[in-house]
Write a protein that binds this DNA or RNA. Structure first.
Lengths: 66, 66
DNA sequence: ACAAAAAGTAAAACGAACTTTACATATAGT
DNA sequence: ACTATATGTAAAGTTCGTTTTACTTTTTGT
């Protein structure tokens, strides 16, 4: 699962810690998601979508063919 | 987290087992998600969106105010 | 009413999502 | 070069998503 969090942060000049705070998760969680270590839960994806005022699909991209 | 899985199944005349098979999860997982026992993972939400050719937001609805 | 299929439920087990604490490395400003 | 801020990483622990097995209840068809 790819995501555009780093770019969306950059556009707003937010640090990982800033984003973490706004999403109510730990900084390590943001880091891990950005680095692709794991996928966010669906509720967290919704929260990010609300924060950035984007569709989930515009932030997170599935990379499945099947 | 609410979802429209039951309706989407009904429109296609699929049982929970049918949907489970198409999404590659167990029937109990579908049942639990439909009954609101837990939220699907983001990858599973994407899979459902692809299957139904809908946006994730058109299948699953967050019910958060904060 | 009966049988078959579908839906609901529950417990045990496992991996994934997330936390806290802690430290290491990188980047930027003076 | 020094300091502060930002990012990366790791271990241990908790909760959540999912599976398997198995049983009960509801719905549907004849």
């Amino acid at each position: 699962m790819k995501n555009r969090l780093k770019v969306l942060r950059a556009e707003r000049d937010w640090t990982q810690a800033d984003l973490a705070e706004r999403l109510d998760v730990s900084r390590q969680t943001i880091n891990a998601i950005e680095k692709g270590k794991f996928d966010p839960s669906l509720p967290l994806a919704f929260k990010a979508a609300r924060l950035f005022e984007l569709a989930i699909e515009d932030i997170f991209q599935d990379e499945e063919t099947t």
